[in-house]
Design a protein around this nucleic acid. Sequence first.
DNA 1: AGCGTTGGTCAACGCTTGTTGGTCAACCTA
DNA 2: TAGGTTGACCAACAAGCGTTGACCAACGCT
Lengths: 186, 186
Amino acid sequence: MTTARRSDATRAAILEAARERFASDGYERATIRAIARDAGIDPSMVMRYFGNKEGLFAAASAIELELPELGALPSRHVGTALVTHFLDRWERDDVLTGLLRVGVTNATGAERMQAIFAEQLGPVALGVCPDPAEAPRRAALAASQILGMALARYVLHLPPAVELSRDEVIAWLGPTVQRYLTAEGP
Amino acid sequence: MTTARRSDATRAAILEAARERFASDGYERATIRAIARDAGIDPSMVMRYFGNKEGLFAAASAIELELPELGALPSRHVGTALVTHFLDRWERDDVLTGLLRVGVTNATGAERMQAIFAEQLGPVALGVCPDPAEAPRRAALAASQILGMALARYVLHLPPAVELSRDEVIAWLGPTVQRYLTAEGP
DNA sequence: AGCGTTGGTCAACGCTTGTTGGTCAACCTA
DNA sequence: TAGGTTGACCAACAAGCGTTGACCAACGCT
């Protein structure tokens, strides 16, 4: 095992500050100087450790959706399970919010978001979709609803969307996602 | 009637360039200098006509959703009608895309987006929702699906979402929005 | 023809940004 | 305890930003 270096704490502090700032300010307004200030170090350290701003963002937005194993649960509950999981994942930290914010204004961010959903939601769709050839579009439909709720609730802060309880969101969106993924046709 | 001033053409050119740049670059990266260059005039003219950058954005994102009259059509088709209308509206110009892009990174933009949907989608929900007290949350649910598809299709450019035909989007999303607005419960 | 008003350019300002290189203290190892 | 490696700071850079004010040209009225 590699022994812990003294700089690991600083690295981690920078990453944490970067995640918060990217999540709350977006790519352009999250300045390296502000991130460094939050982390309590000098801006030049950020460059030393991550090369440049884009490198910092890449490191800060490394993410696993950690989708649950689909085979374990009956496929008729996959919609509810997915919505529940994403709600949890979204509220655990601000990495996903940051990714969404950056994905909207930055081409690199958009590509990363594309890749994440293709690689991690795609297989789930493949497992439960009636026609495998249709899996990508089913996944895209499901993603549109999940991302849309995240947008309304965590980014735009539309009041009625924020006030919906966790269970209400699951109850409303679950069947929608279920239908998108498993229905024979529209 | 007020006679056309010489400057109207310039004003319009600035607004058009601003809409394009806000839509494709977001608020921060859409620089006044670039907008002025696109419009073929000096950056200082932008300040003269619109005061400052925020004023320019406010003018460039003045928008009417132009939602169809709800009373005219049977309420069981309101979902499909809404999705159709938004698809049209979104593809007509880039004002909505710009608003979405800016709303995600800019507080002013988010408030504007909130206001637009509350004022213009809210009444529609009030007209068709079984319990008037529930109208705002129903509208928020519908907005989440509509915005989510716009996000996936026009902003993030998720390939399967882009490749969906117009009619397919309507066929899939129509029933969802219909359910959100008119169902008795989840 | 003369003059105020309008539409426009130009050059500069103060500021912030990402980024760099030089310097210094703390640490580990021999 | 000496010396190299590591971690961090500081000051500065060039570029780009929003914004301002002085200046000029064309127009429309009388």
